[in-house]
Design a protein around this nucleic acid. Structure first.
Length: 267
DNA sequence: ATGGTGGTCCTACCA
């Protein structure tokens, strides 16, 4: 089973490159973030025509929004609201994989603004509270199919030193500050989540999934960050056979500032 | 130290 995640920064504007990705890479399941699309306007017909008949959209106008697009049917779906804000930042679907049900959680964690101080910056405070709520939810959630879960999405945090172009220069930049890296580690500990991307690509290699639109030449300056992630519960450990970060997608026509990541599972 | 680009939906706000 091939699973992909991609912060698309408007699914309607970038529909052509999403369809190209589905054709070229052919994932079974694609999780999108920042769809910026109300559910009534989600381009379901185009995805159905491409062979993806099972679609779960959790969107809103203008901001945020996530979606799960699948060739495999959903046995169950969910959407959870975090921090009581009404933001569309989570969707989940249980898929009937070969070896049994697999629950996929798709997240768009708040970016957190510019100032990494929760006292001065409400957005950073929201980011930390969102992560705390994620941790608490996974600690308490006994109703899920315990040992077959995948968590993907734009977590807006680059946890490792090699997940950013300069660890030293980004220590006080939101996305790489110790306080948020620690909160993310606590989310990871809630279920023993395994970072399968770093299982396949060693931590001594720099790896990024996002490059700012503001760079004159993103590839030349290469000031990237690894903000997008694929985690699994320990029960799936060993099932992930390969991962891929499609860096070339950053140069596709009218690109997103994030690139897709895929993981192949023998399940 | 600053501003650089790109999205939504029309005026700022967000990334």
């Amino acid at each position: 089973m091939k699973l992909a995640t991609w912060n698309i920064n408007s699914v309607r504007l970038r529909l052509p490159i999403v369809l190209r990705f589905l054709e070229d890479v052919a994932p079974d399941v694609l999780c999108l973030q920042e769809t910026k699309c109300p559910n009534a306007q989600f381009p379901e017909k185009d995805f159905r025509k491409a062979g993806y008949e099972h679609i779960l959209a959790n969107g809103q106008s203008g901001y945020h929004g996530v979606a799960i697009i699948s060739r495999l049917p959903f046995a169950d779906t969910g959407k959870r609201e975090f921090c009581g804000k009404g933001d569309a930042r989570h969707a989940s679907a249980t898929i009937d994989a070969r070896d049994g049900p697999l629950t996929v959680h798709n997240f768009y964690v708040p970016a957190g603004g510019d100032e990494p101080d929760p006292e001065k910056n409400e957005k950073f405070d929201h980011k930390l509270r969102f992560l705390d709520e994620m941790r608490g939810w996974f600690e308490g959630a006994a109703n899920e199919h315990d040992d077959a879960m995948v968590l993907v999405g734009d977590l807006n945090i680059a946890p490792l030193e090699t997940d950013v172009w300069s660890h030293k220069q980004l220590l006080k930049v939101v996305s790489h500050t110790p306080v948020e890296v620690d909160r993310l580690a606590a989310v990871q500990a809630s279920r023993g989540w395994v970072d399968v991307v770093r299982q396949h690509i060693p931590a001594d290699e720099h790896l990024y999934t996002w490059w700012s639109y503001r760079a004159r030449d993103w590839r030349a300056s290469n000031k990237g960050r690894r903000l997008d992630h694929i985690w699994t519960t320990p029960g799936l450990n060993g099932a992930c056979k390969s991962v891929d970060v499609l860096i070339d997608a950053r140069d596709w026509q009218k690109p997103s500032d994030h690139v897709p990541i895929t993981a192949v599972f023998d399940i």
